[in-house]
Simulated scan of single mutants.
Amino acid sequence: MPKFTWHTSAVPEGLPVRQVYGFLFVPDGRLLIRLDGSKHSLPGGRPEPGEVEYVDILRRETMEEVTVGIGEPHYLGYQCVDDGISPYAQVRMAALITTVHPPEPDPDSGRTYRRLLVHPGKAGDLLSWGETGYLQATAAAEAAVDVFALPGDDLPETGYL
């Protein structure tokens, strides 16, 4: 069973980054959750050959999966996944959604994902990533308020984008 640990430092030299995911916020402070049937996740994915900049990976993946443009992302940290064979990193970033386009099928999967907007405090439960998921969601909620100056309380109800 893999072991997951959350770190707010930079990814160590030599630890491969296999995924980059984003906590994406709309201006009213709600968080976008990607919905695939009943499965909740964040937009993001794997680097393509030649991609090394986390920002570039996140921008491409958010446009492909949930057809939104984002502002300058803020690095939150990484989750180390130790599968007992070859540990790797999953980078997490936060960003503001700047443009919203009509939903389109993801070029990789052919699926069109629904875009659920939720209070950031619900992210840990919806993502079901355990303790490290709650730590990541908390870091994202703090960045929403401290970095992006979004409201932290009295947010609108859950809805779809």
Results as ranks from 00 to 15, higher is better:
1 M>N: 14
3 K>I: 03
6 W>K: 00
7 H>P: 08
9 S>G: 13
9 S>N: 14
9 S>E: 15
13 E>K: 13
16 P>D: 07
20 V>Q: 11
22 G>H: 05
23 F>V: 08
25 F>G: 03
26 V>H: 11
28 D>W: 02
30 R>W: 10
30 R>M: 10
32 L>M: 13
32 L>K: 08
32 L>Q: 01
33 I>S: 06
34 R>C: 11
37 G>I: 12
37 G>Q: 12
38 S>D: 07
44 G>H: 03
45 G>L: 06
47 P>C: 06
47 P>I: 05
47 P>S: 08
48 E>M: 15
49 P>Q: 10
50 G>W: 09
51 E>V: 08
51 E>H: 09
51 E>N: 07
53 E>Q: 13
54 Y>F: 13
58 L>D: 00
61 E>T: 04
64 E>C: 12
67 T>E: 15
68 V>M: 06
69 G>C: 14
71 G>S: 12
72 E>V: 12
76 L>T: 09
80 C>Y: 01
82 D>S: 00
82 D>G: 00
86 S>N: 14
89 A>C: 01
91 V>E: 01
95 A>N: 12
96 L>C: 00
100 V>L: 14
100 V>N: 12
105 P>D: 11
106 D>P: 06
107 P>E: 11
112 T>Q: 13
112 T>A: 08
113 Y>A: 07
113 Y>S: 04
116 L>Q: 10
117 L>N: 11
118 V>E: 04
118 V>L: 03
118 V>K: 03
119 H>M: 07
121 G>V: 07
122 K>C: 05
123 A>E: 05
124 G>P: 07
126 L>P: 05
128 S>L: 05
132 T>K: 02
132 T>C: 03
133 G>I: 02
133 G>M: 01
134 Y>F: 12
134 Y>K: 10
135 L>K: 15
137 A>H: 06
138 T>Y: 01
143 A>N: 11
149 A>H: 14
151 P>F: 03
151 P>K: 07
152 G>C: 07
155 L>P: 04
157 E>R: 11
158 T>A: 09
159 G>I: 09
